[in-house]
Design a binder for these strands. Structure first.
Lengths: 127, 127
DNA sequence: AGATGTCTACGAAAACTTTCGTAGATCTCC
DNA sequence: GGAGATCTACGAAAGTTTTCGTAGACATCT
């Protein structure tokens, strides 16, 4: 048996998934209306991706007033962690510390961000 | 014209790219030999992906003793930053602080990791 | 020179992702 | 009840990624 590698959502899937996370639940129409400016894909294309997301277990659906409502079956936080593990494995040798180091090096973090992160770390170091 | 979104390397491309980064430079054969246990793809498949990576500008190649040597044209560090920006944008609302928070929440970081990260942050806060 | 092995190029099959159109179902408003 | 709009299901075209096979080039050994 082939070890099924943990696949992340694809670009477009994630894009739509984020909209559902943000709205809490949404119809195809609503997802479509919440696409960013200039991003236009047809109603049916959006419907298709949502149904794929349902197939993959990321979304559920239920009958709403007149149309289906899609809602997340996985928490955004969980997916975030999963994505970070994936990146950590694939690019940072499984070492999350290296990831943070790279982020600190390659990104402009505000003093506020830095201070907040430090506070969180200290809370963890001194329980 | 369609705004070309910044595409990251695909899974397999990244997998091979990491091997070249690790080895510094490598022949097709060497890359193949450095695949993880149980991952077998044919010589020609590896060669194909490497040539795609060259096409995309991620690798260069030169004549070695008897066979081509591939070497990185982009630094791993740069790619890491790029990947993190991509994740930050796509999943954390453009906010790198949120990313770190999620990593701290969703991952078991060792005390050493935490301490090291804190040190880096403090160095940045008090220059 | 000829057989054998290794290497690169090329193309294309297979798999997956993204996008769309059509057709049938359902609702809504005269 | 019928015209028109909206919704879902289905399938498939178009695009991309992954994988492989074949063929020609080049070397090596005998």
């Amino acid at each position: 048996m082939q070890k099924k590698r943990e696949r992340l959502l694809t670009e477009t899937e994630l894009e739509l998934m984020c909209i559902v996370w943000r709205l809490g639940q949404a119809t195809v129409r609503e997802v479509r209306e919440n696409l960013p400016e200039g991003r236009d894909i047809t109603y049916t294309s959006v419907a298709k991706i949502l149904s794929i997301l349902e197939e993959k277990g990321a979304l559920g659906s239920k009958k709403g007033e007149k149309t289906y409502l899609y809602y997340p079956r996985i928490a955004k936080e969980d997916y975030e962690s999963r994505a970070l593990r994936h990146v950590t494995q694939g690019l940072f040798d499984g070492n999350p510390g290296s990831l943070v180091m790279r982020l600190l090096d390659g990104t402009d973090l505000s003093r506020e961000d830095l201070a907040e992160i430090r506070k969180t770390i200290e809370a963890r170091l001194d329980p």
